[in-house]
Simulated assay, not measured.
Amino acid sequence: MKRAASTLLVVAALVAAAALLNPSAERHRQKIRQAMGERSPIAGMLGLGTLKAFASNYRSLGVASYTTAGDRVASVGAFGFVYVLQ
C-alpha cells in the first residue's frame, strides 16, 4: 500500500510539473523563427521564420502543446522544451 501511494505521488508531481512547464505560444513561435534561420540562412534573412511563426496556431493539451501551420504540425512542446518539426 505504501509503494502504491508513493508511486501515485510521483506521478502526480510529474503531471503537475508538466502542466507548469508547458511552453507558451510565444515560446513556440520563438523556436520556429530560430529553427528556420538556422536551417536556411536565406530564409532567415527574408524573415520566412517570422511569417511561419505568425501563421501558426497554438494548441495546449494541458501538459503538452503544439502548433500547426495549415494542416501540418510545426512544433511540439512539453516540460519547457519545444521541438520544431521539419
Rank of each mutant, 00 (worst) to 15 (best):
G80V: 08
Q30M: 11
R33A: 09
N22L: 05
L51R: 14
G44D: 02
D71I: 00
K31Q: 15
R72Q: 14
A19W: 12
R3T: 05
G47D: 10
A78N: 04
L8V: 05
E26I: 01
E26S: 09
V15S: 10
L48D: 04
L21T: 07
A53T: 03
S6E: 15
V15A: 14
R39W: 02
S56D: 07
R27D: 12
K31H: 09
A16V: 07
P23V: 03
E26K: 05
V10Q: 07
V84G: 07
R39Q: 08
Y66P: 00
Q86A: 14
A64G: 08
G37W: 00
M36V: 14
G47Q: 07
T68C: 03
A5F: 11
S6T: 14
R39P: 00
K31N: 10
F79S: 06
V82N: 08
A5N: 09
S56T: 13
L85W: 10
R33H: 01
G44E: 02
A64Q: 04
G80S: 10
Q30V: 03
V63T: 15
M1C: 02
V76I: 15
G47T: 02
V10D: 05
L9A: 15
Y83D: 04
F54E: 14
F54R: 09
A55N: 10
A43Y: 04
V11P: 01
S24Q: 06
M1E: 06
S56I: 00
A4P: 00
L20Q: 09
I32R: 00
A18F: 08
S24E: 03
R27C: 01
F81A: 14
Q86S: 14
A55Q: 12
E26G: 04
P23I: 01
F79G: 02
E26V: 06
R39H: 03
G80I: 10
A13G: 10
G37Y: 00
S24W: 02
M36Y: 13
R3P: 00
L14I: 14
A5D: 12
L20W: 11
T68M: 09
G47A: 10
H28A: 05
R3D: 10
G77K: 10
R3F: 09
A17R: 07
S60P: 04
V82S: 13
E38H: 10
F81G: 00
G37I: 00
L85Y: 13
A55C: 09
R59A: 14
G77C: 12
A13R: 06
